[in-house]
């Protein structure tokens, strides 16, 4: 049994009297200790998927169908108390907004210790020791002293380190990192990715790494799930994806990976208008921009073919 099984997950927002699904039946698995990337253009539904796993969708968004099985329990059915125990405990998350992710009016030490105390039966002293250990672990020096500092006394990269320390403080089995480096500048990005890779090995956690940046993903993930328009396009080992992408969208994505002269790691735009859900139809969402597309692609969504660890949703994948 996999650590996390997302099965046919749908996420909808009530809009003008009906529910518009922004994620429309996505499935993937993460094995214990595995590191999976979730990639796709802006708006493809990556963050909503991550929030749905944690059951943190913002009102009025809700899970419309499917299941999220973590260690065998279906989180879509779990009650709030169970979710509260899991969040920050067995499943944890790091968001992209490092600058605003810490509460500005509490010292970071208090925030860290509160997370530890929420999940562990510890005394203040023990919570404090653990907090110091965690700050050391994520590479913050003078941890003792830093505990008393407020978020505004930390740089952006340091704040993200604190947030990561919070996320892993209770030794989660699964860490979701939603674009943890987008708010940071390039040199800091590399450090944070190195930190995550290091933590993954030391703490033995599974990772769901959400990103735009295929280079960063390649550095840290062994498998990638490619999302487009709220649907899974391809789920493939990273090597296969990089060397022989099967789905036309994956190919387009890789073609867009910059040449040397570009800014490192950034995607270049794919030809054609980006997908919008407002105009979503029954067919493959990528069909309007796809070089291979024919009438059937625009009409009917392709079924998934292939077996884990390599699945593809494309009418043309067999041929």
């Amino acid at each position: 049994m996999a650590l996390l099984e997302v099965e046919n997950l749908g996420i909808g927002f009530p809009t003008g009297g009906r529910i518009v699904e922004v994620v429309r039946g996505v499935s993937f698995k993460i094995e214990a200790g595995e590191s999976v990337g979730l990639v796709g253009e802006s708006g493809s539904g990556k963050s909503q998927t991550a929030l749905a796993i944690m059951r943190l969708l913002r009102e009025p968004g809700r899970i419309t169908r499917g299941a999220v099985r973590f260690d065998g329990t279906d989180l879509t059915q779990a009650d709030e108390a169970t979710m509260r125990r899991l969040r920050g405990g067995a499943v944890s998350i790091v968001f992209q907004d490092a600058l605003s992710g810490l509460n500005p009016v509490f010292p970071v030490g208090v925030q860290l210790m509160d997370v530890i105390a929420a999940h562990r039966d510890v005394t203040r002293e023990q919570a404090r020791e653990r907090a110091v250990a965690m700050l050391n672990l994520v590479g913050i020096r003078n941890a003792e002293e830093r505990l008393g500092h407020f978020p505004h006394q930390f740089s952006g990269g340091m704040r993200q380190r604190v947030l990561i320390a919070m996320a892993v403080a209770c030794e989660p089995k699964l860490l979701i990192a939603d674009e943890p480096t987008t708010a940071l500048d390039v040199t800091v990005q590399a450090q944070i990715v190195a930190l995550l890779r290091d933590l993954r090995e030391r703490l033995g956690l599974s990772l769901l790494f959400i990103t735009h940046n295929l280079d960063l993903m390649g550095e840290i993930c062994s498998r990638a799930v490619v999302l487009y328009g709220g649907l899974m396009m391809e789920d493939s080992p990273v090597e296969t994806l990089f060397t022989a992408p099967s789905h036309p969208y994956s190919r387009a994505l890789l073609d867009c990976v910059p040449r040397l002269e570009d800014e490192p790691g950034m995607l270049r735009p794919i030809e054609g208008a980006a997908f919008t859900l407002a105009t979503a139809e029954a067919g493959c969402p990528f069909a309007p921009r796809c070089v291979l597309a024919d009438a059937r692609c625009g009409r009917e969504h392709p079924p998934e073919t292939g077996q884990h660890p390599h699945r593809i949703a494309c009418w043309w994948s067999g041929s």
Binding site: G101, N103, L163, A167
Partner: peptide, 25 residues
């Protein structure tokens, strides 16, 4: 609506603790 409240919820803090965080802010 602030990001840090979402973080507090994502870290599994209790409602009461989150209320204190919110009020203090």
């Amino acid at each position: 609506m602030a990001d840090h409240v979402r973080v507090s919820r994502a870290m599994g803090l209790s409602r009461g603790r989150i209320l204190i965080y919110v009020l203090r802010n």
